[in-house]
């Protein structure tokens, strides 16, 4: 008998395979979310998943829960509305960096200020993948994208500073650091108040390819080389991943 991956029961498995490109990190993060939910024994009847627009916006539809797929950038106010109307629900948001920091940046600022008890998992792939690979708010300086052919001239958004300015839970991880990312999401879900987990993820089709990566494995490996775990700090350096409570 083949063993059963019980955490996959949080997904509508009949919808698999996902429509994401081969090698996309979104699937790994979907799995991390499921594992964290299983660890905490979240029930279908008291969990709601909200997402915005973009590749990552499609995540919500895969969960075997009541889920909401909102308009671009507005996942946070919708999640806040849900949580405040029914405080018993566990409200999770999975969305991308363009959605949460770009078009929805104002809502992030105010949702963290209001400190509503929701958990946000940000799939931060530093690119607008669905629209073809334009520069996003988290694109690194000098990085080449469709709209920055000579390299990005603007520095990426400092999400850590935004979220921790209001003393909220902030964690950063990558898809390579699987266990660490799982720990981040697990702790974020238990945190009472606004918790934000930024998971760096690879987009090979519209980002890595232009930056000289051959496949998504190479991108995963680049996370291994570029990020060091540091869980005991109040401020993460740009090359560190960790949890700030």
């Amino acid at each position: 008998m083949t063993k059963e991956l019980t955490y996959l029961n949080y997904l509508k498995q009949e919808l698999l395979p996902t429509q994401w490109c081969p090698g996309c990190g979104n699937g790994i993060i979907l799995k991390i979310a499921c594992m964290a939910m299983e660890k905490l024994d979240f029930q279908q009847k008291d969990t709601v998943m909200v997402s915005g627009i973009g590749c990552s916006g499609r995540s919500a539809g895969f969960f075997d829960l009541d889920s909401v797929h909102t308009v671009h950038g507005r996942a946070l106010p919708v999640a806040e509305g849900i949580k405040l109307a029914n405080e018993k629900l566990n409200v999770m948001v999975i969305s991308g960096d363009g959605d949460l920091f770009g078009i929805g940046g104002n809502h992030l600022l105010h949702a963290s200020r209001r400190n509503t008890d929701i958990t946000v998992i940000c799939i931060s792939n530093a690119i607008y993948g669905m629209t073809g690979g334009q520069c996003s708010p988290t694109t690194e300086l000098t990085s080449k994208t469709l709209t920055t052919p000579r390299g990005n001239v603007d520095s990426p958004i400092n999400v850590q500073a935004l979220v921790t300015a209001h003393n909220c839970f902030y964690a950063r991880s990558t898809t390579f650091h699987f266990n660490h990312a799982l720990k981040c999401v697990f702790e974020a879900l238990q945190y009472k108040g606004f918790s934000f987990v930024e998971i760096k993820s690879q987009c090979i089709t519209n980002d890595g390819r232009r930056r000289g990566f051959k496949n998504s494995y190479e991108m995963l490996m680049s996370y291994r080389e570029n990020y060091k775990i540091n869980n005991d700090t109040n401020k993460l350096e740009h090359n560190e991943i960790g949890i700030i409570r």
């Binding site: 507005r74 919708v78 109307a85 809502h107």
Partner: peptide, 19 residues
């Protein structure tokens, strides 16, 4: 809320949640 966009989205959420 911080703006009208957030307002309408918050009530979309709350209405879905049964309010």
């Amino acid at each position: 809320m911080e703006d009208e966009i957030a307002s309408i989205n918050a009530i979309i959420g709350s209405s879905l949640a049964g309010a």
